[in-house]
Design a protein around this nucleic acid. Sequence first.
DNA 1: CGCGGCTTTGATGTTCATCAAGTAAAGTGG
DNA 2: CCACTTTACTTGATGAACATCAAAGCCGCG
Lengths: 228, 228
Amino acid sequence: MDEKCSCDNCELKELFVDSLEEDHMEAVCSSKKEKDYSVGEVILKERTQIREFTYLKSGLVKLFRSDPSGSEQIITIAKPMDYVSLLSVFSNDEYNYSVTALEDSVTCSLNLENLRMMMRENGGLALSLLQKMSRAADRIILDTLEIRKKHLRGRVAYLLLYFSDNVYFSSEFDLPLTRKEMAEYVGMTTENVIRTLSEFRKDGILKIYGKTIQIVNQELLRSISEFG
Amino acid sequence: MDEKCSCDNCELKELFVDSLEEDHMEAVCSSKKEKDYSVGEVILKERTQIREFTYLKSGLVKLFRSDPSGSEQIITIAKPMDYVSLLSVFSNDEYNYSVTALEDSVTCSLNLENLRMMMRENGGLALSLLQKMSRAADRIILDTLEIRKKHLRGRVAYLLLYFSDNVYFSSEFDLPLTRKEMAEYVGMTTENVIRTLSEFRKDGILKIYGKTIQIVNQELLRSISEFG
DNA sequence: CGCGGCTTTGATGTTCATCAAGTAAAGTGG
DNA sequence: CCACTTTACTTGATGAACATCAAAGCCGCG
């Protein structure tokens, strides 16, 4: 789009690096579509044709599925470099989950057929995507099992530490999820998420100002996450 | 190993079909290693170097992980064509789960480095494996979420129907899992698995002879699985 | 035959979901 | 900008679902 290929400056170029010859690189660059989303906007919708391979350039999103009764389950939270369209993309023709933005986000999409073609011609690219996808799927599966083992306090602790350690890299941050969403992620009720947070506050583990969380006693929180 | 390549007759050849040129096919064939396992034998062990790409030719296996305290969580049950070493293989250098045989099983292994090389040279092969892996991961993730939503009765019903519909294709079959393993799979206690089975028996939904299960009222079981 | 693992049932207590009710915060339209 | 509505958050009380504990029968195997 620019005079030179704008993908050259993309911090995600490494994703394809070593795998893409110059001509393919240009094909990618000219066919890619960047899109902006603000908080709450729908990026992908369940039961919808998959035509593109989409990944997250910046922001934070949630993957979830909803059932007829209207309730939702959050599958995972994804930040840049976690694949957004990892599930289903190469195995299904419809998404079996939805994605919405938890923070203002930018995605970049490639035509899936083109990508498939490139992968067929370029095994290194295919292998590199396989690796990334494998890693992403692993994380979801292991996290889910991990959460399932824990009691409510452990689940909430785990979730808070996830944001602190892997997303915001700080002991103080703004929760990108509502209490309800936290509940949908770790499989408990909204009321009990709140109750648990309140307990943590009373125990001096957290300070809570609405969505803003400050972890005061990290050590204790970690041990609750591990053994609770 | 035989006078001709023995893989020509392998029912899993299609896995590579259209993707493997003749010379690669022979490389695969001569380097592959088939192994027999009987019930209960360990096929892969957690925290162990991944050197091979292993898949299941026949039999039935469980993937699970154990924690320090000794308790185990079953990740999934795999039958032939479900990938055995799908998780981690392309993303990690150690297995993060173990695999043991639930029935007498035969596996076939390829050297992982060789396979990687073939995939680099042959994008079609890589794409085909990506597809299979994606499907397998999807199934695990969605099944886990599905199970999590349900109450105990629904979980047990779901599990029984899984065996009936997808493994044994019959309303009567021998459970390949102990009651304890069933519990480890669906996240409940052994006692409650037993209690639930007994309830189903009393309600005339099942007949139970030790490990042998006969589903009498399939319709009801399905509705319990769906709504319970 | 007796030991250990798997299975079964009952009694008890804890954890958690549900229900109810109220406060705070955040959009919405006049 | 303020009343109005809706959505998010919070706390308490209650009961249901489930884990835990205990005890006994069963079965295969050395």
